[in-house]
């Protein structure tokens, strides 16, 4: 299996925000989900991968070639959909395709027309007049029409209804069945990733909190529900994102084995969304304590 993408110690600084020491590689055939709260650095990472912003330090290699010195070649291998940063919306899909064909060496007009047809997009209706879902489909069609080896999508499903979201993800899965392709999908909506992503990159405050197999990450946590009175100090220390009412306490644990055989406790598989929220809350709490201690 060959490497499609390699990031070596990539960092970039914007004012006070630092996206730092990002180091990972992506093999072909992988669906990578990029998650993190607002401001974690997801969009910055996508901009780096697309060559929109050059990294401050470190290197980005695509298909074994340095992105900075092989910009045009590397970008020809990438298809992209950016949630809010769409371009040339004043054009009709037909003209958008013609304009893009000037840039992409392997632009496949027949494929583009067939995708427009499949997505039921009128070739003559201006992109700006299309609904959010139709726009996403349109830009997905542009990303899929030049035989890209890597698809990079920045929150493409935000603002879409569950039906369209499911359709978008299934198109991506279909794309992944082609040889030598990979998908990088940044999203707030973890349910889009739960079912389909192979790998997870979890960014928190500009740092790589986790990179690896999604299943491994999810199975390293568990959801614990218990009677609050049964939770002693040691138990509470093992829980993150603890929520309590008079009758129930529940939280996420990073040590599922600890809870085996404990009375009045129910251990269940944790959902990705609950894990991410709990880890983020814990991180915020730790940083607030550090800040307070620093003062």
């Amino acid at each position: 299996m060959s490497k499609i993408l390699e990031l070596n110690d990539v960092s970039i600084k914007y004012g006070d925000f630092v996206l730092g020491n990002i180091d990972f590689s992506l093999d072909e055939g992988i669906f990578l989900g990029v998650v993190g709260p607002n401001g974690a650095g997801k969009t910055t990472l996508i901009k780096l991968l697309l060559g929109i912003t050059p990294p401050g330090t470190g290197s980005i290699k695509l298909f074994g070639k340095e992105l900075s010195s092989n910009e045009a070649w590397c970008k020809n291998q990438i298809g992209f959909v950016l949630g809010e940063n769409r371009f040339w919306e004043t054009l009709a899909p037909k003209d958008l395709g013609s304009a893009l064909s000037l840039f992409y060496r392997d632009w496949d007009k027949a494929e583009y027309d067939s995708l427009l047809d499949r997505f039921e997009i009128s070739p003559k209706k201006k992109a700006s007049t299309l609904s959010t879902g139709m726009k996403t489909r349109l830009y997905l069609a542009t990303a899929l029409s030049h035989h890209a080896k890597l698809l990079i999508l920045d929150e493409p499903t935000s603002g879409l209804d569950p039906f369209v979201r499911r359709e978008v993800v299934s198109i991506l899965c279909e794309y992944l069945t082609k040889d030598g392709t990979s998908v990088i999908f940044s999203s707030h909506i973890t349910s889009d990733l739960d079912r389909n992503a192979d790998y997870l990159l979890f960014l928190l405050n500009g740092k790589n909190k986790y990179y690896g197999a999604l299943d491994t990450y999810i199975s390293s946590f568990a959801q614990v529900r218990s009677d609050p009175a049964s939770l002693d100090g040691a138990c509470r220390e093992k829980l993150i994102g603890l929520r309590e009412t008079a009758t129930v306490a529940e939280g996420i644990t990073a040590d599922p084995a600890f809870w085996d055989g404990r009375a009045n406790c129910v251990r269940e598989n944790a959902e990705l969304e609950d894990i991410l929220i709990a880890v983020t809350q814990e991180d915020r709490k730790t940083r607030a304590l550090k800040k307070a201690a620093g003062k």
Binding site: L50, A72, K75, N76, N85, F87, W88, F103
Partner: peptide
């Protein structure tokens, strides 16, 4: 083309 559309910079053009 509106220069604030950063997507333009992702096209395969130096």
């Amino acid at each position: 083309d509106p220069p604030d559309s950063l997507a333009v910079f992702a096209l395969p053009v130096r």
